[in-house]
């Protein structure tokens, strides 16, 4: 186990190296001078000179990269081109908001998906399953931002049940306020992922219902409810852990449009404002952070999977 984790961590190095080059090169790929890209077009000459110094534009290109990456390694991505504040702090501020949104969305997604997946696996030929299939197709086909508009019309503007602008209220400070503010964007994302998760639950439950140990359990007279919940479902939920885990990675930064629709101050909207405002230091730091987070989450999911299912051998 330990040697597996170490090996995986070592595999991160080439990926991170590539990612850092790609992220560093963003500044150089933008039309115009890299220094202008870094501080914006209306920067003072002093600021421009400082940016040139920071980028090391007078040095050979590999040295310029080393200069940038040695800062990045210790978390120094420079200052925002828009408000001049250090990039790392702004990033750190948004991460709890994104994690809270991910938590709410996954909870809603699972609450919707588990019953749907279980029913469609147990009664594959029933009318209810046909309805569930249509729901799953719709959940994946209907864009979350459009669901967002419709929810805002229905629940925020007309009935005033929820605020139409979602602020970040930490769950541990004010649970009710957190629920009110996070529910609508989380519902949009939750509906979407419930389409994915339900399909997984259904497929793997069908698989495990066809296994020998289920037949054995039935043959020795275990009540059907216990066969399903204790024998089949427990094993069927293992692959679901993977899907749910990977979804958390996708939620960091992948929820840009939903966050924009609800003005939710997560990582996605930070990146969106950075892209529209050409705030490249923020983009650089955010992309690198998301890559690292994604790799770590993948590793944690794999380890968790092996811990939950002793049959899985990590190689």
């Amino acid at each position: 186990m330990v040697s597996y984790v170490v090996r995986r961590l070592l595999q991160f190095i080439p990926v991170l190296f590539l990612a850092s080059i790609a992220v560093w090169a963003i500044i150089y790929a933008v039309p115009g001078s890299p220094a202008t890209a870094l501080v914006g077009t209306d920067a003072t000459p002093e600021a421009l000179a400082a940016a040139e110094e920071r980028l090391g534009l007078d040095k050979p290109v590999p040295l310029q990269y080393l200069q940038w990456v040695s800062g990045a390694v210790v978390g120094d991505f420079g200052d925002s081109a828009i408000n001049g504040a250090p990039v790392l702090g702004q990033l750190a501020e948004r991460i709890p908001a994104s994690l809270q949104l991910a938590l709410f969305s996954l909870t809603i997604g699972l609450l919707l998906a588990l019953p749907l997946g279980i029913v469609s696996a147990l009664k594959p030929r029933s009318v209810l399953t046909k309805v569930i299939n249509v729901y799953q197709a719709a959940a994946l086909a209907i864009p979350t931002f459009w669901v967002g508009i419709l929810l805002i019309i229905g629940l925020a503007v007309k009935r005033n049940v929820f605020p139409s602008v979602s602020n970040f209220v930490p769950l541990w400070v004010d649970p009710v306020g957190a629920f009110r503010n996070t529910f609508l964007p989380a519902l949009c994302l939750g509906i979407y992922i419930s389409g994915i998760i339900a399909r997984f639950v259904s497929a793997s439950l069908k698989d495990s219902l066809a296994q020998d140990y289920v037949r054995t359990a039935r043959a020795k007279g275990v009540p059907e409810g216990a066969v399903i919940s204790k024998h089949a479902l427990r094993n069927a939920l293992l692959p679901t852990v993977t899907v749910v885990g990977l979804q958390i990675g996708e939620f960091l930064g992948g929820t840009v449009v939903t966050e924009v629709v609800f003005s939710y101050p997560g990582l996605g909207r930070l990146i969106y404002t950075a892209v529209t405002g050409r705030d490249y230091p923020i983009i650089q730091a955010a992309v690198l952070f998301i890559v690292i987070a994604f790799l770590l989450i993948n590793l944690i999911v794999d380890v968790l999977y092996a811990l939950l299912d002793p049959r899985v051998r990590l190689e």
Partner: peptide, 22 residues
């Protein structure tokens, strides 16, 4: 494979967003 690892680690919409930013 390492290149695909990197691109796949960035959510699709975000990747498109950054390319458009450049």
């Amino acid at each position: 494979m390492r290149i695909t690892d990197f691109v796949l680690a960035v959510p699709g919409i975000l990747f498109a967003l950054v390319v458009v930013a450049v």
